[in-house]
């Protein structure tokens, strides 16, 4: 799949730490220093208590499959059928991603299956986080 043609993110000042993290092989989340709420996507304040005192930390990279679809329509540069998934991170927040390293079928993609993050470099600036079945040494 010619990954470089994906619509790649343009980091903003508020999200740059996340994309620097993926480039360094880390999945970074934010935690509120006041109420300990962990959240995503990035922003410089807590969406639960509105505190501006928040910290960035490295997430475990472990997740479970929350929901998904398998797109069957042509969508260059993607090769259909491919999954578009939402995973629930061990720390609580959910994020969209693709599930890689397994067949793109309902049989292989079971809700609640254990997943772990894997990183694929797209450009010098952008590395995307994907998820694969946990324990897969790919």
């Amino acid at each position: 799949m010619p990954e470089a043609k994906r619509p790649l993110p343009k980091p903003t000042p508020e999200t740059r730490h996340f994309w620097e993290g993926t480039a360094a092989g880390e999945l970074r989340l934010q935690r509120c220093d006041q109420c300990s709420h962990v959240y995503f996507p990035p922003r410089p304040f807590c969406p639960k208590c509105a505190s501006r005192q928040v910290s960035v930390f490295r997430a475990s990279g472990r997740a479970r499959l929350y929901s998904y679809v398998i797109n069957h329509r042509p969508a260059p540069p993607f090769t259909a059928p491919y999954s578009i998934a939402v995973v629930e991170l061990e720390e609580g927040p959910r994020m969209m991603t693709n599930i890689v390293g397994c067949p793109q079928t309902p049989e292989a993609l079971q809700l609640d299956m254990a997943l772990e993050v894997t990183f694929e470099k797209q450009t010098d600036e952008i590395t995307l986080p994907f998820f694969k079945p946990a324990g897969d040494s790919r």
Partner: peptide, 16 residues
């Protein structure tokens, strides 16, 4: 808009 939140955190994964 690739700098928007969905541009950064959803669009790269093949949503159409």
């Amino acid at each position: 808009n690739r700098a928007s939140l969905e541009g950064q955190f959803e669009a790269p994964y093949g949503i159409m």
